[in-house]
Design a protein around this nucleic acid. Structure first.
Lengths: 362, 362
DNA sequence: GTGAAAGCGCTAACAG
DNA sequence: CTGTTAGCGCTTTCAC
């Protein structure tokens, strides 16, 4: 390359012997230009290797063509970064992985699927997707490095500082993902409550005779609250004996609470607020020799990987993360098209994955 | 909001009674402004809710502050998109998942980890990350929707049309991920060859007495070629009886080739070019009643989820995808800082995950 | 159908 | 330390 500077509309215009306005038209409204000029301009574009500058476009057109997606941070430990190897080959690490722990240090699939859905939806609508995942996404960072770059922002609940929502409102459209309805901003979430209710009704239909144990999540989690509400919905209109015990979404709590409970009573069904605690409960049941699903059926919630490989495989509920991503972008697009539209809140149905831990299929 | 237009430097300048240059300075070179003015300007910024416009910045500063990451498409089936539910709750889908197939329609974790690494590295360097994942990323799309938006582009090999590389070279820095060295562009890849060689040397050390079978990948895959080379490296300097059979990276091929081979001979080790075919081979061995790892050890390559949950769990090699993402961005940054630097090609060491299928630990 | 010209909002000399 | 000014590359009226 002789000139290191990228060619601009001016270069193309000169080369094609037209005005810059025509070059711009050819690229944006091809039908408003005569066939012959269009050809000529496109040929010049090709020959010069012209690539339109998005910043200039964005500035002139008052839109960036970019949507932002804000997800919780990943906590990538940069310390374990591997050094490149030389010609001789280098230091291959041998890891003892008999317990399967090494396989994947970054387990949370949720947000990755969100990215996929969002990316696909954005792309389809002609937008690019900017992904941000700060461990500590500070207010300043959002404002300075994100808000000014995008036409709209989709953010997983509790990743954006609350006051930002307010500042943003009316300026950059914002949709909240998987959280409570924000201050007038659009939102999309999974129907945790309805999903749990549906699951529990199914459980009531297939479980052996006996009481139901609900293994609740931490009281401060909105998800836990919604799921518990769903559980209550399902048992409310039925003649069931049930009790609830407090967990905290961990395997440990699930296991210990279950074990303690088993000392007093063997339930006919254990409905856990999430998979981790369900797996813990499963372990405790096994230790006590309780047959699952024969004597007691068990269900989880989330659809984490481990649920597929548990013994027995765990019946659970999967949130439609890809769909959440898609819908979030769609809401953004809707608001972009009609800034005055009413704030809207989408609730997406979940999928119940029927597996061995819950006995026969319906 | 009375004025729907976002405030600009002019608004802030007027409000703080300074010039726009000072506003700009406060934001970009705070130390070049007196304490008092800085305070005043920041107060105005805050009060007006000013957010700098990235397009204008990019245009004026000739840099966008954005890096692009191009990964293979996801093939999101938009047809299965779920409809939102109403107040009443909606149609929860019950899926028979006894075979575990429903759990995750989007299985390929590779690129997601890549995104993570890249995102973290880019962010750390003060860049935002634009992720593009077209199913059919056409040349035009890359040129029009990506190249003009970013300061540099990292692309998974074979996602970008070749001619684009040439056009791009010297303009937008480009690094190729997990592919051959491009036309002078930087590249980063996993040390497939070295990793396989290390794995195979380990296998030779622990396997029972007897011949080794190499289950090769498709001839047209660069990965397969590198792995096979690694295998040959490892057996070359050793007194081993071995043979190779052609597979195509699928479970089916792994199974069938293995089954056919078993009719003639029971190897003491099966080294497969990837996990899928290793799992197929594992199945065939089980069908024939060959004990793994007692009679025959087995290894895969890739570290897919299934390898952790196979019976026995599969010894395999994991590519450092997160690291690849990080390094790709680092290469980009390097070239951004020094456009004239020599093209460089990084090879990252892989991790060998020792699991049950390969017998005792070293 | 095409061209001239006026910005879009910001940065970075260059003066003062 | 602060202000003036000239663009950055493109889109878009508005004339012709």
């Amino acid at each position: 390359m002789l000139d290191d500077r990228s060619p601009t509309v001016y270069d193309v215009a000169r080369h094609a012997e037209v005005s810059i306005a025509t070059v711009s038209r050819v690229l944006r409204h091809p039908d408003k230009v005569s066939e012959t000029t269009r050809r000529r301009v496109l040929a010049s574009v090709e020959e010069l290797g012209y690539v339109p500058n998005a910043s200039a476009r964005g500035l002139a057109g008052r839109r960036t063509g970019v949507l932002g997606l804000l997800i919780p941070g990943h906590d990538i430990p940069t310390t374990s970064l591997r050094e490149p190897v030389g010609e001789e080959g280098g230091t291959v690490a041998f890891l003892d992985d008999r317990d399967g722990r090494q396989a994947d240090p970054y387990r949370n699939r949720y947000f990755e699927q969100l990215v996929r859905g969002a990316e696909a939806a954005a792309w389809k609508a002609g937008y690019a997707l900017l992904v941000a995942a700060g461990t500590s996404v500070s207010r300043d960072v959002v404002v300075h490095d994100l808000a000014g770059r995008v036409d709209g922002l989709a953010a997983v609940a509790r990743t954006v500082p609350e006051d930002l929502l307010l500042r943003s409102a009316g300026r950059t459209p914002l949709v909240t993902i998987a959280g409570e309805a924000g201050a007038g901003s659009d939102a999309v979430r999974a129907d945790n409550r309805g999903g749990m209710a549906a699951l529990v009704r199914h459980v009531l239909a297939v479980k052996p005779r006996g009481p139901v144990l609900y293994l609740a999540g931490p009281p401060d989690s909105p998800d836990a609250a919604a799921r518990e509400a769903g559980f209550r919905d399902a048992v409310a209109d039925r003649d069931v004996v049930w009790s609830a015990l407090l967990g905290d979404f961990t395997w440990r709590a699930g296991h210990d609470v279950m074990a303690a409970h088993l000392a007093r009573e063997v339930p006919a069904a254990v409905v856990a607020a999430n998979d981790q605690s369900a797996l813990g409960a499963l372990a405790a049941l096994r230790e006590s020799g309780v047959e699952v699903p024969g004597t007691c059926v068990v269900t989880g919630f989330d659809g984490i990987d481990e649920s597929r490989y548990a013994t027995p495989t765990l019946t659970t509920v999967r949130q439609p993360m890809v769909d959440l991503g898609i819908r979030a972008i769609e809401l953004l697009l809707r608001r972009l098209a009609d800034p005055g539209a009413d704030a809207c809140e989408l609730r997406l149905p979940v999928d119940v994955l029927l597996r061995q831990s819950c006995g026969p299929l319906p």
